[in-house]
Write a protein that binds this DNA or RNA. Structure first.
Lengths: 255, 255
DNA sequence: CGCACGATTGATTAGGGTCAATAATGGTGG
DNA sequence: CCACCATTATTGACCCTAATCAATCGTGCG
């Protein structure tokens, strides 16, 4: 069931059959959510960890005066806050953008999983660190890049993340969100995002139509975005740790 | 030695004498670094975890064309990437802003610490999650807030963080950074930051002089910043977990 | 076929950038 | 203690990116 999730973790480290089986079992409690629904709302206390099986969602925060910032996107295979239980209440909301199929993972299931599978524990660590790295890159994106650079950077990132879970098709990937939502993520207005998109189309960089994005010239797009994929840590970073797997001691806690 | 760090963790959970002793031992290898020095550089592979004992530092990323974004500030008591060893190389740099005294913590010392002290493990988790929450809030800050709101928000955040480690004095706290550095953090030019500061002074909100910040009207400052401190999780969130401390099993890994 | 939402366009404005110069400050050596 | 220098802070003039406001156009879908 959690295809994409497993595939993503395997981009970090090799997994055994047992590992994979254990991960399959996480998707016991599957829920279907309509588009534009809150999955968790700021102030709620976390009940379980959500794993996105299908569809897109986002983290967002809404200011008292109505302004909304989308803080990150969730695509299939993404897990929302593996370790959230330490905190008493959510400081942001998570909402669906499209219809979403998700697995609700109870705390104990995660504890049990990491208890038995050090390699998965490490892979979840990696997942958490990459999520943090993406958030940092978004900070750079909003702080330093111009409209067109920003959008180009987002497209590069999303394409690589989708490719890592097998959701691209050649140079095309899904992009099932509105220009308004793009705008809320880029800290700009939809009017300006619209104009930027037209500029990118005019340059022959992309096609964006029918909720699908085609990248016509990835090299040029990356150059224009000042894109460096290193922060996604997609190069099997886990390989150098695969040797020391014998003990299931708590030495795994931090490794 | 790691005064501020211990004090910060105690804002999350109660610590025993043994806990504190164990934390003291972390500061074995202490280094002094001058101002404007790189502590780690993008591309380096992490050798140890740095704990800031004194002085200010920052995470930053530099784009190929020279633009620099400060991604976060480190103040005394902050720890840089507790779990960084999972990644092969740094995707950003950490540099000092003032002279910095820091403890270099080897990986094994951390493993040993979390092995023996479940409550500390949990507190480190909390630290990691709050750091992520701060990063998200910066995303909102850069994406949605105007110049004056942004700066006001930063001041609110820094003041509370410094108070949590005992570094405020009434309504005053240190702010040992230049307007240029403020500008790199806010995604603006120093010229504009300068003008914004003057506006805040003119409104009677703050005094900023001699590397010290005084907040004359915290309520108004928070209102203008649309500041909600919930993301700092400063309300002893750990209390609800303090009951179940007996076992030192790997159940601690995720709790 | 018509409706509702999303995309697009135009005109105008404003926030913040750029460039360039000047004024304060603080640390240093004599 | 003072003169000097290098940062850092401040100011002014001008420009440009992106916001705002307000229609209008498409199009996917019931």
């Amino acid at each position: 069931m959690p295809h994409h999730f497993i595939r993503k973790l395997e981009g970090f480290t090799r997994l055994s059959g047992e590992n994979r089986q254990a991960l399959e079992k996480l998707a016991r409690n599957v829920q279907q959510v309509g588009p534009d629904q809150d999955i968790i709302h700021e102030g709620d206390s976390p009940e379980h960890v959500n794993l996105i099986l299908d569809g897109w969602a986002c983290r967002y925060k809404q200011l008292r005066d109505g302004r909304r910032q989308i803080i990150s996107f969730f695509v299939p295979g993404d897990i929302c806050d593996t370790h959230v239980f330490v905190l008493r209440e959510m400081d942001h909301s998570i909402g669906s953008l499209t219809p979403v199929r998700l697995a609700q993972i109870p705390r104990d299931a995660l504890l049990d999983l990491t208890d038995r599978h050090p390699r998965i524990t490490r892979a979840l660590w990696w997942e958490t660190l990459v999520t943090a790295a993406i958030q940092r890159e978004w900070t750079v994106n909003l702080g330093q890049r111009s409209g067109i650079e920003r959008l180009a950077h987002l497209f590069c990132e999303l394409f690589l993340r989708l490719r890592a879970v097998g959701l691209t098709d050649g140079d095309t990937c899904p992009l099932p969100i509105t220009q308004n939502e793009l705008a809320d993520a880029m800290g700009q207005t939809s009017v300006h995002v619209n104009r930027t998109l037209q500029e990118m189309r005019g340059m022959g960089l992309i096609i964006l139509k029918g909720k699908r994005l085609t990248i016509l010239n990835m090299e040029q797009l990356q150059r224009m975005a000042l894109f460096n994929p290193n922060y996604l840590h997609l190069n099997r970073d886990g390989a150098h740790l695969d040797a020391n797997d014998q003990g299931v001691s708590s030495a795994q806690t931090l490794s």
